[in-house]
Each structure stands twice: as C-alpha cells, then as structure tokens.
Design a binder for these strands. Structure first.
Lengths: 199, 199, 199, 199
DNA sequence: GATGAATGAGTTTTCATTCAT
DNA sequence: GATGAATGAAAACTCATTCAT
C-alpha cells in the first residue's frame, strides 16, 4: 500500500512504528524476522501490519525506500559541498556509519523488482554519479572510475568488517580509507574489465 | 557425522552428490534452501541427507570445510610462487573466481561456532598472513596492511558485483584490481583505525 | 499460553474443543497421540492447536491441570461430608469412576516439572491428606496409613482393571473395595517400610 | 522369528545381547526406545535386530515372553513351598522386586494379541491361580478373592511407588503389604462387583 | 481501522523397515 | 548371516496471510 492518500493520524503513527520495529527486527534477525515479532515490537496487532503492507515483501520495499531516500538526502547536501573530495568522502562515510549502526543492505537483494525501489535507486545512483563526477573532474579520483564503481563498493567496508569476530567500532573507517585509496589517481594500474553500465 | 572411517562406495558417492546439490541450492536460495529441495536435487530421499549430516548446520559446516580446504590448497601452492606479488594476486584471483561461480560466503556467518570450521579457518588465515607478509616484505603492499586486512577484503569483489543487475562475467576482476590498488604502497594515505586482531 | 486474559468467544470454544479432543486422543493412543489427530478430532487446523498451546507439553499440562482442579473440587466438597468414611470413600469412588471413563493418569509422569501442575498437585494432595486425616482420626483407617499412601494408591483400581481383557464396567469397584479393606484397621499387619514424604 | 531351529552359536549370543539391550533401553526410555539405540547398545548393526525380530513388536513380545517365563519359574518353585502364605507372598515379592529393578510392565499392553505371549500369560495365570487357591484354602486369603484378583493387583505396588518423587528403594514393600492386608480374611467387607473371568 | 484467531503449506528431524553390499 | 545405507511416512512446530469480530 503506497500511502498516496492521507492516512489518519494514528494510522500514520502506526506506519512509522512499524517501519522502525521492522528495521530493528530485520537488522537483528535478518530476513527471517517474523511479522509477528515485528508487530509485537511495534506494539500493534499482526493484522495491522498487513493493513499497512500487503505482504512482507512490501514492508521490505518500504524500508529500502526509506533508506534510499535518506541517503539521497545526504548525497544532495554533499553535492553542494565546496570541496568535491570532502563531499564524496563525507557521503561514503555517512552511508557506512549508518549501515554500521543497523545493516539492512541484505534487503536490497529482495527488492530488485519493486518499481518504487528501482526508481529511488536510480535516483540515488544518479546523485552518486554526480558526486563521483565532480571528484573525478577535480582530480581526486582516477579517471577510469565511474559512479557505478563507487556505488557497488559503497557497502564493502561494512561487509568486510563482518568477517572479524570482535571488530572495533570504527574498524569500517579503515576499510573505507583503504578502498578509497584504490580509487585515487596515485599509482593506479589499468583495470582489467570494463565498468558496468547502469542499470 | 564426520566421515572418519571409510564410507562404502555408494555412500561416498551420495555424500558427494549431496554436497554438490547443497552447494547449488544454497547458492541459489541462500540459507533458506530446504533440505527437501537439496535431497531432491541430489536424487536421494530426505532421510539420506540426515544419515550423512545429522543437522542442517552440520551440512553447512561440511560445505564450508570443503571450501576452506580447497582455498588452503591454493594458498599453499601460491606460497611457493617465485614472485610474491604473483602469488598473492593469483590466490585472490582464484578465490574470487570460485566465489563468482558459486557464492557461498554467507555460510561463513552461520559456522562461527563449529570447531572444525574454526580450525580450518585459522589455518587458511595463517596462510593468507604468509602470502601477505611475503608481498609486503617485497614492497608490493603498503606497510600498514595486515594479513587480516586482506582476509576480510577477499570477498569484497564478488560482493560488489552483486549490486549490478547484469554484470559482465569478469566484472569482479575490475573490483579486485581496484581494491588491490588500494593495498599498494603508491600514494597510500594513513589509515584511520588500527588493524583488527585475529581471531 | 495460560489463558489469563479473557478469550474471544470463538477462541474459548476452540480451546474447549481442543482439550476435549486431546483428552480423547490421549486416552485412546497414549502420549503418542499426534497433534494432527487431535486437531482433526477437534475440527480445527493444526496451527490452531499451537496457537492455544505452544507445545505438546503445554497441552498435556493444561489437561492435567483441568483434571487436578476437578478432583480438588470433589475433595473439597467431600471434606464437609458428615461421615469421614463416606467422604473419603466417595472421593476415591468419584476419582476412579472418572479415570475409568477416560484414563489419563499416565500424563502425570510427563508433567513433573510444570509449575502450574505442581502447585495444583500439592493442593490436591493437601486435600487428600485432610480427607485421610479425618478418616484416620475417626478410626476408619489404620493408624499407620498416611495421606500420601492413599494418594499413590488412588489410581491402582483402574490400573488393575487394565490387566483384564473384557472387564465388567464396574470391576474397578471391586479393587477399590479390596484396597480399601487393606487400609482399614481390622487385622492390619505392621508395614515393612516407612511412608513416603511429600513431595 | 521364534527360534524353533537351532541358531548358530554367535547368532544365539546376539539374540541374548539384543534382548538384554532392549530390556535396558525400554526400561530407560519406555516404548519410545529406538531400534537403533538398542542395536548400538547390543553392539550389533541395526539390520541384525531385524534378522532376529522381524518387527519391533516381535522384539517386545520376545521380551515379555522371557519375563513371563521367568516368573512362571518362580511361581512353580513357590508352589512347592511348605507354607502356602509364604509361597504366595514370596512369589509376589520376587515379582515386585524384579519389576522394581527394571519395570517393563508397560510392554504387556502392546502384546495383547501375540499368541506366544498369550499362551505364556495363560500359563503363568494358571500358576498364580494355584498359588492363590492354596493360600485361600489355608485360610490365608479371604474366601471371595480369586487368582485373577491377585494377578491384576500384582503390579500395583510398583505402580503406586511411581507417584512418589524420590521413593525409598523398598517403598514398594509397604504397598505390597498394604494390598496384601486387603486380601486377608480379617475384617473383610463384601466386594461390590463379581470377580473377573479369565481370559 | 484494529484485533488476534484460524489456516495450511512448509520446515527440520526421527525412525521402523528394506535391501544392496 | 551381518552390515549399515537408503527410504519415506510421520512428527512437532513456524509463519505469512486471511478474515470474523
């Protein structure tokens, strides 16, 4: 149910409660999180979940949309940063920091077909493309790197940290820096495969 | 059931069939792949799965062990490569190529507690440490990079490719190269967080 | 799920149907009675059983509680019988008669650890103790007999009848009388072992 | 498989091992004891169990037969005791003592239809009838008590002890004595139901 | 709109029994 | 004869989804 029409105040509040609860549950239990648990955590009945989101997939899609939206906001604000390097790095840092708090990146995989998600993803991707373009033009990034390259590496720092058993809370910064160094022009070796096209 | 004693020929065959079928199913459906489907794919009855692997967890552990074993073999052989850079790059390339064929890296997460897996993981980690040490000593890698750093970034190229909808079959090589450039000494920026300890 | 809050009318009805069906199935098939069969007999879906009783154990406990409750009611009413002998005999008779209709005494064994069951069992035991005390003080029972003695012999008549292939419907009365004669003072021989303590 | 023909020495030994293991397992786990566990305990393969006993029921029947046989032996020996009271009491005591060591009485219920069991049961019943007849004729038992009455009460002492949580090891003697007092002539009240017929 | 009871397909796992080795 | 691998019919339990209240 895309909330086209205005929801009653309490319904809108329930929707927010549900999204928050679902994010928490998914972050803790992965996709296996159950609707029951989400409903309980949100303090509403199970039926109410389905009034707001016709299927579990729709709920997931709504969450992903929220996340994409929030990141787009960040990207837009960093697009007007005076320094292109700072803008891009800041964007990647905020992205990773949020993901570190509550990693929901695995929800992307389930929402490949959702059109609302796709639209927002395209939008965010375009913004990343701009951030990357600015940085590349400024000589901050190597010339053979594309926005899509950065897009797909965006989650890598958090993903990498997942292989350490008791990671320091800021370990992801290490891998973000390491990967970013690979994106810089200094000492760049030619890349063995063409950059991916979007979409 | 660790196959300590020799299995009968037909049982050994079924064990292989089951492992192969399970790898396929897990790769396609993730951890949610069902034992029923795995059995069907292997062409045996459900009960046979449990004769070979008492629980689903044990089956997963067996798969992970096989993978770690195979990679350790590769690592050992590359340790005797004359050129340290070639040795490390080759190891990372084979690792990624196999993972690209059938990505089962997500199974690692479920087997943190299995002792056989842990032992093999430590073993492989030690080999990676050596490969990395050789390369760093040879000046191929930046001095502040550790074996564990490389270990956690090992799966990043395939992970990155997962965010592209119709990736070229060798796209992962691009991200392996990009990340590897980040590990090189040229133009290295200081890293903002200490390297993780193992384990 | 202990039904603390009020159940909806239809749910309450299903709960009763389920308890009745379960009692029938358990009486016919023993503890091996399956949840599926119970559900079918109650005319509900399998899942509904688990909505009311989270596990099979919980269902068994609920049944045992009901039985203990009903017997406690009988005991209490007989405690105010003018004649202590009549009170005790009547209690034992009603107990055996019900058990004869549907013997679920074997469920006691599985619920030793359930706290609700334990509490009710203690309660009923205390009532039996009183019934027995009254009777013993009135000279109806031998002086070396305790409430716990009567408690453990309570199910013996029905148990005995179980060894006869085509028992007359009131055969249990014969064994109740025979055992009760053993509890009387006339011709009592000293007992070779101390009475058990409760619990 | 009734062992009509001679078994090879090792086969005969396996049969004994299996019966012993099965008795232990059934005593510990009840009817739910699994053939696998029994085979393991006996130190033979699962298939071997089925070579000796075509079904689980047959195995149970064989055990019951052994027990009935052993008790018949006891009964026969006590039939020639000089004192009828001692003979009967001794028989009931030995019976209860063995059952206390390893209670397999619940296996009776599953073997109502087995013809070998039925024959042996009839035989033992006839012996009990004789023991009881002698005692009754000697004035040790009340005149309205039959062999079948004693037969069905035979397991009651152990059954009663089962309702106590931490029973003293000889508590069963108390209930045997109590029940036996009910069978004595002193202070006997008329019985309310006719004695059961056999079978 | 909200509730929570009911559904039933699906999951992992067990086990008596069969049968190729 | 003995072995132990394979079978497949249950079993207990879960959960997204529907729907009466």
């Amino acid at each position: 149910m895309t909330p086209i029409r205005q929801l009653r105040a309490d319904a809108a509040r329930n929707r927010e409660l549900l999204l928050a609860a679902a994010e928490d549950e998914f972050a803790e239990r992965g996709l296996a999180a159950s609707i029951s648990d989400i409903a309980r955590r949100a303090g509403v009945a199970k039926g109410t979940v389905f009034r707001h989101f016709a299927t579990k997939e729709e709920l997931v899609a709504a969450i992903v949309c929220e996340q994409l939206d929030a990141l787009a906001e960040v990207a837009r604000s960093q697009l007007s940063a005076p320094d292109p390097e700072v803008g891009l790095v800041e964007f990647l840092t905020v992205t990773a920091a949020r993901q570190h708090e509550r990693d929901l990146s695995f929800l992307q995989a389930v929402t490949q077909t959702d059109s609302a998600v796709t639209a927002l993803r395209d939008e965010l991707h375009a913004l990343v493309e701009q951030l990357v373009g600015r940085a590349r033009d400024a000589g901050v990034l190597r010339s053979d790197v594309t926005g899509t390259d950065v897009w797909v590496l965006m989650c890598a720092p958090i993903h990498a940290v997942g292989y350490v058993s008791d990671p320091a809370p800021d370990l992801w910064r290490r891998y973000l820096a390491l990967i970013f160094d690979g994106l810089r022009p200094d000492g760049a070796h030619p890349l063995p495969a063409a950059p991916p096209t979007w979409p």
